[in-house]
Nucleic acid binder design. Sequence first.
DNA 1: TTCATTATATGACGGGTATCATATAAAAAC
DNA 2: GTTTTTATATGATACCCGTCATATAATGAA
Lengths: 200, 200
Amino acid sequence: MRYPEDHKQETRARVVKAAARSLRRQGPDKLAVAGVMAEVGLTHGGFYAHFASKEALLGAAVEEAFRQGRKRFALTAGDQDARTALEAYVDMYVSASHRDGRELGCPITALAGDMARQAGPAREAFDTGIKSLIGGIASRLPGEDEAANTALAGSLMAEMAGAVSLARAVADPTLSDSLLEQSRAAIKARIAAVFESSDQ
Amino acid sequence: MRYPEDHKQETRARVVKAAARSLRRQGPDKLAVAGVMAEVGLTHGGFYAHFASKEALLGAAVEEAFRQGRKRFALTAGDQDARTALEAYVDMYVSASHRDGRELGCPITALAGDMARQAGPAREAFDTGIKSLIGGIASRLPGEDEAANTALAGSLMAEMAGAVSLARAVADPTLSDSLLEQSRAAIKARIAAVFESSDQ
DNA sequence: TTCATTATATGACGGGTATCATATAAAAAC
DNA sequence: GTTTTTATATGATACCCGTCATATAATGAA
């Protein structure tokens, strides 16, 4: 059936978005091709008109998740100055609402564990996604040494992701909340320190 | 065949140990009952003489992984004073060798992502395991307020796990190494701060 | 209105895996 | 040495899932 012009691309995009959600909700192993297609109102057969394999879909889904993550970063940062933008991002990231919104949250928190054991396109997309997010943070740090900034940004990113990840795993909600709070404060203190030492 | 006395318990223990390794290496979904049994030199059929289900095995495997983790903690801590013990643990945890030894490493780092989507015995075992490790850290912190210590310990734990987790995900080994280094320093600085503020 | 095109649907195949009923064999007890 | 016990093995069943060959139907072009 000859659909309007770019119908296929739109369908593909919808499939990828559904996969990006399902991936963060269920992980790469439990994500099922037929399930994702059904979420979009299609049947499993047509899948291979869009993707060469499930692996290819996973790769595209990881890319999509990072695209959303970068968008959220840009949105949170706005046109504020570097330090304010970073602090706002930390507040948004290390929060109860991010903890509770796994399926639309940052792929680093949701998938780091899985991706360490993954090969293929998804792994590669994850790596470039991480680099891009770390780069976004590093570019807002005050120091001159680019490698040092990247390493610091990576460490900040790690602590943000770790805090949300553990907050998701802990059952006691009070502990989970205060754990987030402590981590948020600690991370913002590190940011403050690096900005203030560069100020003087 | 009537084997020596406690043969069955020993077999079970060997199966659990193999499962604890396989779990950290492959994750809960890729862990296969037959595979674990084969690792111990048995066939899949006998499995249900030892465990009610794969879920039950996962629960036991998580417990075992935490048992190993606590042992490593105790071993690292030795009978040193609280602060030195904590610092030694951080050095051991946030290290390249821990990053590279996933299959025998801390289950928090290896499994936090998976356990957020898991139900049943494994999830529960993971929760009590986390609480126990956090408790071990909290008991070595100087403050008086127990809830505050637990939250701080949780936040420290989160940042340790996050650092190792991200170091595993990043492909560039130089970045991975320096990311660990930065995180290690930051975590130890937090520990130093809390001890020094309690000293005065 | 008919034809040609092509996105999607149907249905099947093969491989993997959890589970379980039954068989086997080895060693302890007599 | 024979019998009894029981840990493990064999083999089957049922289910889920990725993949793909083929069929269908909807629509723009003629």
